[in-house]
Computed example of a mutant assay.
Amino acid sequence: MKRRILYVIGSLNVGGAERHLSQVAIRLKRRGWEPEVFALSPGGPLTDGIEAAQVPIYGAKLPKWLAAVLRTDRWRARVMLVPAALTLVFIIWRRRPHVMHFFLPAAYIVGGLASMLAFVPARIMSRRSLGVYQLGHPLFARVERRLHPRMTLVCGNSQAVVADLRQEGVAPAKLRLIYNGIDTEAFSRPVERDQARDTLRIARDATVFVIVANLIPYKGHADLIAAFARIQPELRGPWELLCVGRDDGIAAQLRSQIDAAGLQANIRILGARSDVPDILRVADIGVLCSHEEGFSNAILEGMAAGLPMVVTDVGGNAEAVVDGQTGFVVPPHDAPALGDALLRMANSPNRVEMGEAGRRRVRAQFSMEACIDGYEKLYLETGARKP
């Protein structure tokens, strides 16, 4: 079936790669393709939306007795790879996809090996981050480098990621670039700003900064708090920083840092939220201060909401934000430089114009439609037939 694409991913929990895959699969289904999804760990919040679009989802489950014996999620995830690989081979033989497309390292390793055992005609790997994670997983690095030559195409989501893949030995003729795309309309709908701020308990005259990133050390929240502690005396009028994202284990540490800096009244940790577009539209300035990235949807979403962005120069961040035009780009791990940029942006008379320039840039270059066009072109290169 030359229109059938089988995606392989670790899970369908809420994360950048997972959300991206779900959006791509749903839109390709609307265009007449036959996407299907295999999750190494089935279930997750994104499942219902994908199934509602009539995109089949497959996976394997551990027997209850074995899951009970394995008391930690880490061991369950490791053992799960065996039934997942066997189930995936069975699904491949039964469904006969023309293309298999792998997202994230574990899915690449399991799916890549299974696809070769089952003689899938075309195999594509998408890398969505720099290869820094390989430093802590040398076995992953060795297996991935063995798999690269056996891929039909290898895709990165930024020029930085593509350059990283080239250094890993991927042949330049196989490398492709597809930037992330977002639904810009979801972030540009009109909002009654004062009423929305009242709902969120934000002062109407406050300068509101927002960072949308799960609470993980490499996202740089500690740098951000240190930056605000440094510039607080120079900020004019009331201000707030809203931290939106799932706690991956450092929330208590960050709260202690906030308390020590005396910023309890200014910085709020909101946790994971389903109303991110609304929060962005009542903010004034967006921030992403990661130490590493592939290409961040959070930046694009902030730009789509009309926010001028302050970002660190890692991965594809500087490919999205044009320094001095749609925001400021600063070095990573540099709280003083980050603070200076935030202060400049807060006091800039041109920040609204910069935000609007960012909104136009996202619509022109990073729309979801442009992204889906890129995927269709990618699959056609493998010999897949257009619907």
Rank of each mutant, 00 (worst) to 15 (best):
M1G: 15
L6K: 12
Y7P: 00
N13S: 15
G15N: 00
S22G: 07
V24F: 10
I26M: 14
E34T: 11
E36M: 11
A39C: 12
A39W: 10
P42G: 02
G49M: 08
I50W: 02
A52R: 13
A52F: 10
Q54C: 15
Y58A: 04
G59F: 09
L62T: 06
K64W: 10
A68I: 10
A68G: 08
V69H: 04
V79M: 09
V79R: 11
M80H: 13
M80Y: 06
A85C: 10
L88E: 13
W93F: 13
P97K: 06
M100K: 09
H101E: 11
G111L: 02
A114C: 04
A114K: 02
A118I: 11
P121T: 04
M125F: 15
M125A: 15
S129H: 08
Y133N: 14
V143A: 10
R145Q: 07
R145F: 01
R146Q: 14
P149T: 04
M151N: 10
T152S: 11
L153M: 10
Q159W: 06
A163L: 15
A163C: 12
L165D: 04
G169T: 01
P172T: 06
L175K: 02
L177R: 09
G181V: 08
D183K: 04
A186P: 03
F187E: 05
R193W: 15
D198L: 15
T207P: 04
V208T: 08
F209T: 08
V210A: 07
I225E: 01
R230W: 12
G237D: 03
P238R: 03
A251F: 04
A251G: 07
L254W: 07
Q257V: 05
Q257L: 09
I258Y: 06
A261S: 10
P277H: 02
R281I: 14
R281S: 13
D284M: 11
V287A: 09
L288V: 06
L288R: 06
G294M: 13
S296D: 02
E301V: 09
M303D: 01
L307N: 02
P308H: 03
V310L: 00
T312G: 03
Q325I: 15
G327D: 07
F328G: 00
P332E: 00
A335D: 04
L338Y: 03
G339K: 06
G339S: 07
A341M: 01
S348F: 09
V352M: 14
E353L: 10
G355I: 05
R361F: 02
Q365N: 15
G374F: 07
G374S: 12
E381W: 12
R385N: 11
